[in-house]
Amino acid sequence: MSDSLWGYQPSSGHSTGAELTGYAVEATDGSIGKVDKHSEEAGSAHLLVDTGPWIFGKEVLIPAGTVTRIDHADEKVYVDLTKDQVKDSPEFDRHRHTEDPAYHQELSSYYMAFRLR
């Protein structure tokens, strides 16, 4: 795990400029949706995942630091989270939360709780 949730782990296989939109996103226990958008912004890198019908079309913002592996051949992104952890994450509103530092802090607190086991 990198020191920051908001940056890709060096071991993830992420390369700057790689297009991840449309890639399937896999939790540790199954598929959670597709990458709708992603950001590589330093200190704020993340995936915006459309969960589709799995949790009624909810969009979730997942910090890039949870990405464990990117498989470009199969167009899949693997995250070190369970489906329930993603499902129970703080609600995301695209129009209010994308650049909101307070929301990023809320997400950091939520996801870091799973790193301190």
Rank of each mutant, 00 (worst) to 15 (best):
H38D: 10
T82Y: 03
K87E: 14
D29C: 09
S39K: 09
D100M: 12
L107F: 03
D84K: 10
L61W: 06
L48I: 09
I55N: 00
V77C: 13
I32H: 03
D36S: 02
Y23D: 05
E59V: 00
G65N: 11
K87R: 15
E106S: 12
H38W: 05
H104L: 12
A24V: 08
A45D: 11
K37M: 03
S109M: 05
D50M: 02
S11M: 13
S31Q: 08
G22I: 06
V77A: 09
R69V: 04
Q105A: 15
I32A: 02
E26F: 04
P10H: 07
K83H: 08
H104Q: 14
A27Q: 06
V67T: 13
Q9I: 03
P90F: 01
G30P: 12
D36G: 00
Y23K: 04
G65V: 05
S15D: 11
S109R: 12
S15E: 15
W54Y: 07
G7H: 04
T98Q: 07
V79Y: 04
H46A: 11
E106A: 14
W54M: 08
M112S: 15
Y23W: 06
G33H: 02
A64N: 04
P53H: 08
I32F: 04
T16Y: 06
A73S: 13
V49I: 07
G52S: 07
S12L: 06
V35I: 13
P63W: 10
S89L: 01
G30W: 08
A27H: 06
R96V: 01
S31T: 11
I62E: 09
S109H: 08
I62V: 14
E106N: 10
D93R: 07
V67K: 05
G43N: 14
L107T: 05
P53I: 07
L107D: 02
D100I: 11
G57S: 05
P10M: 07
E19R: 15
